[in-house]
């Protein structure tokens, strides 16, 4: 018998009681040089949920994440993050909000002139009012979360792709953000390393209850996340008991030709009649 999945029970009560979504896109359109990338898309991310954003290369997945952080301004529509309409905010005001939102870029985007320690500590050092000992303690803490304490003094160029991705996760979570945005966190990694990253995201979802958008072009990663929970006793990800699908706060959003063609949970997805979708989930 599987151990009682305590994380799931806690989860359920907190998701059902949560009211306002942490991220909401309303009729957002975005184009680059007369090419429309996003065409009036709307969706929302409830608190505590992890939403997998799926679409082929160039479908605008990364653009969605950059819009959600205010790194790009949409051509039309509104984007609410933690209740604030970020399309109306100036860059200085956004800096404050971004403290509550972490992002892991596609190619990790670590600062290559800084060591792992300095990369992870970047935000704390920039804030300037935290003691060196406190910074060191928190850097070690998040690096141990991603199991990379031994790389403190290395530089990004000395790390493997999977390690860089984990350092990027550590850098994003050091301020314990309420929202995490992952851009193709498993892209270009071997299956074993991918699983490690997926496990970290599941842990973030089930242990820290972080709401997140996870861009991926590998639907199977998202299915793994929908069918597993994080077991705190063994500190490992475990498969949900049979029949328990949909018990973890995991949803899917599928983009095609600038539109959202699917937004729902794993069960809805499995029963979808859309041929384009069926092709991907088979």
């Amino acid at each position: 018998m599987a151990a009682p999945p305590n994380a799931i029970e806690e989860r359920l009560e907190s998701t059902t009681s949560s009211a306002a979504p942490v991220v909401r896109f309303e009729n957002v359109s975005m184009g680059f040089e007369d090419k429309t990338v996003l065409d009036e898309i709307s969706f929302h991310l409830p608190r505590g949920e992890t939403k997998a954003v799926f679409g082929v290369a160039g479908s605008g997945k990364s653009t969605i994440l950059k819009l959600a952080l205010g790194l790009l301004k949409p051509d039309a529509g509104s984007i609410y993050v933690l209740g604030n309409d970020i399309t109306q905010m100036r860059e200085e005001e956004l800096f404050e909000l971004r403290r509550k939102v972490g992002i892991v870029f596609q190619e990790s985007a670590l600062f290559d002139s800084l060591s792992v320690r300095e990369n992870v500590a970047f935000r704390l050092m920039e804030e300037g009012n935290i003691s060196d000992e406190e910074i060191e303690r928190r850097v070690r803490e998040v690096l141990s979360f991603v199991e990379l304490e031994h790389t403190l003094d290395k530089f990004p160029a000395e790390l493997s792709g999977g390690m860089r991705r984990r350092v990027a996760i550590a850098r994003a979570i050091i301020t314990e953000p309420e929202i995490l945005l992952y851009d193709s966190p498993t892209a270009g990694l071997d299956p074993v390393t991918s699983t490690t990253i997926v496990e970290l995201i599941v842990k973030q979802r089930d242990v820290y209850k972080t709401s997140s958008l996870m861009v991926t072009h590998r639907l199977q990663d998202a299915f793994v996340m929908a069918s597993h929970y994080f077991d705190r006793q063994t500190n490992r990800m475990r498969r949900l008991p049979p029949g328990a699908r949909g018990e973890v706060p995991m949803s899917f959003l599928i983009l095609r030709d600038g539109k959202v063609i699917f937004d729902g949970d794993a069960q809805d997805l499995a029963h979808s009649k859309d041929e384009y979708i069926r092709e991907y989930i088979s």
């Binding site: 952080l69 800096f95 971004r98 992002i103």
Partner: peptide, 9 residues
Amino acid sequence: DAMRALGTD
């Protein structure tokens, strides 16, 4: 982008 995301101009 990462720098801006981390709250630094």
